[in-house]
Design a protein around this nucleic acid. Structure first.
Length: 303
DNA sequence: TGTTATGTTGCCAT
DNA sequence: TATGGCAACATAAC
């Protein structure tokens, strides 16, 4: 669920509904550890009567910035959800924490698998996180050159390296599979052994699949919704993710997509379009350099 | 009914 | 330091 496009979709849906609002109460419901080492009283002491001055995102982390310079840091992990509803609405399933706002609405955090966290943090913690995470892949400053530097001398396989949040901030399992397919790279290639041309393809592919996910309000595989309950529509545009399990045809060559395990993660690839061996170095352009076209991702539905 | 997989990250061992 | 494996948890699907 929540990779960069999904978290950004949540941010955009939350922001207009909480900006300028003041937190008037905190309620802790099912899973107490959702707020880390705080208790409901220590957390309340820090956030009640504070107002929300901004909603920001870094990688897959969300921040509600408060008027005293501190912040509420939210990570959705696998199944976390933010829900904004009128106070009188009954609790949603797996609801663990509620911030009551001064206009009669609740900002609620729900999480089926209890991996997500909502932590009150000082400004310095935000700074530390910012320094620990890799660059934002959609930022203008994220160039192919910058990507090349991040991959330089890495001896691990490409997919786990791209999932490492200290290499790039915000990529997860779905968008890595999608980007590797578009760039025609096998997930088991050694990250530090890509040619400059391959890095350029990968850079374009990463930005393309993330932008597309964002344009479709995220990928809803099973549970993802934004804060208003809307689901993303990007699932219908996925090229490989989820298609390997049932061997659906590659949108490019028609061969069945395969599902393998790389770094303990389910991985979806086209064995023909994403060759395992690095290309023979050639002078000038070669068919190997072709990127899989962005457009024909959606297969025609059979009548 | 038991086994396996699931979008993430942090901790531990090598 | 870099890399790989697994646990944290609840549920659905096979």
């Amino acid at each position: 669920m929540p990779e960069l496009p999904e978290v950004e979709t949540v941010r955009r849906s939350v922001e207009p509904l909480v900006l300028g609002r003041t937190i008037v109460a905190v309620r802790l419901e099912q899973f107490f550890r959702v707020i880390g080492d705080d208790t409901v009283s220590t957390l309340s002491a820090k956030v009640v009567n504070r107002s929300i001055v901004a909603v920001s995102r870094r990688g897959k982390y969300l921040y509600l910035l408060l008027d005293d310079g501190t912040a509420i840091q939210i990570h959705l992990r696998m199944t976390g959800r933010l829900v904004l509803t009128p106070r009188e609405e009954p609790p949603v399933r797996f609801q663990h924490l509620t911030f009551e706002l001064d206009n009669g609405t609740d900002l609620r955090f729900a999480d089926q698998r209890k991996f997500g966290r909502v932590l009150h943090v000082p400004a310095v913690a935000m700074q530390e996180l910012h320094e620990r995470l890799g660059p934002e892949p959609l930022a203008q400053s994220f160039s192919a050159n910058r990507l090349a530097k991040r991959l330089e001398r890495r001896m691990g396989r490409l997919k786990p390296v791209l999932l490492d949040q200290s290499v790039i901030g915000g990529l997860g399992n779905i968008y890595v599979d999608e980007a590797l397919f578009v760039a025609r790279l096998h997930p088991c290639r050694i990250a530090g052994e890509l040619t400059p041309r391959e890095i350029q393809r990968l850079h374009r592919a990463i930005r393309h699949v993330l932008r597309q996910g964002l344009a479709n309000n995220g990928t809803t595989v099973s549970t993802f919704q934004d804060a208003t309950g809307a689901e993303g529509t990007n699932a219908q545009h996925l090229r490989v993710y989820g298609r390997g399990t049932i061997g659906l045809p590659c949108v490019r060559c028609g061969r069945p997509i395969s599902r393998i395990v790389v770094g303990g993660r389910g991985t979806h690839i086209c064995l023909r379009c994403q060759p395992e061996a690095p290309p023979v170095e050639l002078i000038g352009a070669s068919p190997q350099d072709e990127m899989i076209p962005f457009a024909p991702a959606v297969l025609k539905k059979s009548p």
